[in-house]
């Protein structure tokens, strides 16, 4: 079997939107979106010691190769990065077109997504990609099993838990509670450098530049503003007396 995992390289720490371009400032350090580590882990768990191939796929700047390398260090077998100057400013629609094209090329039986991109918090991309691939999709998977050509997912909704089955090939987005991602071992980190990894342009995956990036996007950021300011929020560092400080605060607010 072949499992493709979609992973995103996200800015580290508290990210900012660039006032000029009105886009997320991606110039600083970045790392593997931590929600996607759950998807990589789940793929590795499903693989076990079988000959299943786990391919990690990302669309992003050249630096996104760092995040793919981390996924390889965790144990994924191969990495594919779609990177192209024409990708800047991609919205959901444009991103889904690019990922669908590269996933089509891979032809994996199972495509996994993380719960959300920590910089976008969309938690929606999988549904757009699955629609383009014309495959069944199940999101928010808290438990996932694959057997006999189908997936079985337990997932939470607003009303409790549903168990959903879908035939392969399928798209599944996992919840961050599905597993505890492993840390790459030293051996994994060393080995990652030798694993096959390719970098593809839009032309190489057969996507017209007009369908990607800003040109392929149907939404736009018009203006940036500040949210209403919060009142007198306090933040303290525990120096051994935090418990007392909390009691004092609660007493001052007449909550104890």
């Amino acid at each position: 079997m072949k499992i493709a995992v979609c992973v995103k390289h996200v800015p580290e720490g508290n990210s900012k939107i660039d006032a000029g371009s009105k886009r997320l400032d991606r110039s600083g350090e970045g790392s593997l979106n931590h929600f996607d580590a759950n998807a990589v882990e789940e793929a590795l768990r499903l693989k076990g010691d079988s000959d299943t191939e786990v391919v990690v796929v990302s669309m992003g700047p050249e630096k996104a190769a760092d995040s793919l390398r981390k996924a390889l260090a965790m144990g994924a077998d191969r990495a594919v990065l779609v990177t192209d100057a024409a990708l800047a400013g991609s919205d959901l629609l444009a991103t889904s077109a690019v990922l669908a094209a590269v996933l089509e090329r891979e032809g994996a039986e199972l495509v996994l997504f993380g719960q959300q991109a920590s910089d976008a918090d969309g938690a929606v991309l999988w549904a757009a990609v699955a629609e383009r691939l014309r495959r069944p999709v199940v999101s928010q998977a808290a438990e996932l099993t694959v057997d006999g050509g189908s997936v079985r997912v337990k997932r939470q909704t607003e009303f409790g838990y549903d168990v959903i089955e879908a035939p392969l090939p399928a798209v599944v987005a996992v919840s961050d509670a599905i597993n505890e991602p492993r840390y790459p071992s030293l051996k994994g980190i060393m080995g990652a450098k030798k694993k096959p990894s390719e970098s593809l342009s839009l032309a190489e995956i057969g996507v017209d530049a007009a369908a990607a990036g800003d040109a392929g996007s149907k939404t736009e950021v018009l203006a940036l503003g500040s949210p209403p300011a919060r009142g007198d929020a306090k933040k303290i560092e525990d120096d051994g007396n935090a418990a007392q400080a909390i009691v004092d605060f609660l007493a001052e607010k007449r909550l104890v």
């Binding site: 929606v124 549904a127 757009a128 990609v129 629609e131």
Partner: peptide, 17 residues
């Protein structure tokens, strides 16, 4: 959420979330 994003892809429409 999954309907909205699926519909965006189907209709080639912009989705703001």
């Amino acid at each position: 959420a999954d309907i909205a994003a699926g519909l965006a892809a189907r209709l080639d429409a912009g989705l703001n979330w």
